[in-house]
Amino acid sequence: MRVIKDNHVVEDNWERVDELENDGPLPAGQVIIPFSYWRDNREQLISSGKTVAVCVNGDDETDEVARDLEHFELIALDFPKFTDGRSYSHARLLRERFGYEGEIRAVGDVLQDQLFYMQRCGIDSFQVREDKDINKALGALKGFSVKYQTAADGALPVYRLRGSA
């Protein structure tokens, strides 16, 4: 599977597992498990010493995810529909408030015209919806050259730039 990562299209083996019995075993390989699975099996997974990748959806509480950041190699944020914007807040909070430095990946209904916003909120890899041309989507990351407001990308708000001109 190909994803956009660090401004390139790259091959990637992480696989998202949606259907997972919450008391079933952890599948082998590079899998992204639902955050709810992590929550239900937390003690056991922590004592196994493995780092995992979790998929967080809009209903999950960011604070709860933030407790266990050291165990997460990757956090996928779900966009079930591209119009569902809750994960933008997750992303900013994970980066700006909780200082998560691992990979944050957008999964689900991820389309070219949202990438710019996602990136500004701190998402750094993108699993573009399969039927779309990922190379074209890559071009959209650039978006606007001016950003009025600050976000997880550390952009200074325009009023700070004006002040220093």
Partner: peptide, 15 residues
């Protein structure tokens, strides 16, 4: 000032 802050706000464009 609010107009500028809200224009293409990355977090609040899909409310």
């Amino acid at each position: 000032i609010i107009r500028q802050w809200s224009t293409f706000h990355p977090e609040f464009s899909f409310l």
